[in-house]
């Protein structure tokens, strides 16, 4: 399929990008890796007036430390993430989820920020960002920056807190170091497919007790969700098969997943419970 015609801008800095977005007319689409946008345009589900291509905005690419946080540039590709030593040390949950994204060709072009800004509930990284309480650093027209927590960033299906004219610049996540165990438990029918359901779990143990638990759910609603009831049940609990299983049984509480040819809603909720159990057991070292 051939996309409808569009104007194209390829800025080299954040400032230039913001200007291009401002000058792009009514319907501007920002292209990061293009791995979701281009298919949608080719299917003519989207026909933007202007595409602003960020691939040459090098300042947005890379991972750095800032105290207790990792700061991930929005244009850092999935392959960059998988090769990054800071991610390997402090961002294992991100790495695990990123490894499951599509195939090597997609991971080579697709970006961390693009995946989050696209906010596909079947995408793998939104639930991870939510579980980690990521902070989204957004540049507005003129260059002013604001920060939005993950809990407020994902608004609806393919919809985020990004306003017109704004650009996602970087994402700050807490370093998960000593004591933390993680697991991204993805359920799909073939290796390259989107998640039918997936669970991102990070658990910090203190001895035989669970001190902290962060659990994000992929594709269990129109946005990524936290399995709050399960998290609460886990904190302070003994690390045992029984407590984890009992806590995981609450993982689908409050979810309203969609029904499609891969899974009807009740089965998705069942999967969320089973996969949460598996993810937490693995993260807790059971």
């Amino acid at each position: 399929m051939i996309p409808a015609s569009f104007a194209y801008a390829r800025p080299t800095s954040v400032d230039e990008a913001l200007q291009a977005i401002a000058a792009g007319g009514e319907d501007v689409k920002i292209m990061a890796g293009g791995q979701s946008l281009i298919p949608v345009m080719r299917l003519r589900l989207a026909a933007p007036e202007t595409v602003v291509d960020l691939t040459r905005v090098t300042e947005l690419r890379g991972v750095r430390e800032d105290g207790d946080s990792l700061v991930i540039g929005a244009m850092t590709t999935h392959s960059d993430i998988l090769r990054d030593p800071l991610i390997a040390q402090y961002g294992k949950l991100i790495a695990e989820a990123t490894e499951t994204v599509a195939d090597p060709a997609v991971r080579h072009r697709g970006t961390f920020g693009g995946a989050l800004a696209h906010a596909d509930p079947a995408g793998d990284l939104p639930a991870v960002a939510l579980a980690l309480d990521a902070e989204f650093v957004i540049a507005g027209p003129g260059g002013a920056r604001r920060s939005v927590p993950a809990s407020a960033f994902f608004v609806d299906y393919l919809t985020t807190a990004l306003e017109e004219g704004e650009l996602l610049v970087e994402v700050r996540v807490p370093k998960l170091g000593e004591g933390w165990g993680v697991r991204y438990e993805k359920f799909n029918r073939v290796a390259q497919a989107w998640s039918i359901v997936a669970v991102a779990a990070a658990v910090r143990r203190e001895g035989s007790t669970i001190a902290e638990a962060r659990i994000g759910l992929t594709n269990m609603g129109s946005t990524p969700l936290r399995a709050t009831a399960t998290e609460q049940a886990l904190v302070g609990a003994d690390v045992s098969l029984e407590t984890v299983t009992a806590a995981a049984a609450q993982a689908a509480e409050g979810t309203e997943p969609s029904s499609d040819l891969n899974a009807q809603a009740d089965y998705r909720q069942h999967l969320a419970r089973v996969l949460t159990g598996r993810a937490v057991r693995a993260a807790a070292g059971l």
Partner: peptide, 24 residues
């Protein structure tokens, strides 16, 4: 199976030009 397509990147359905947006 449910007859709805998955919602990944908006879902693709048939229409005049071949495609229409899935119910969102």
């Amino acid at each position: 199976r449910a007859a709805e397509g998955s919602n990944a990147y908006g879902g693709a359905r048939t229409t005049e030009s071949g495609i229409e947006e899935a119910a969102q």
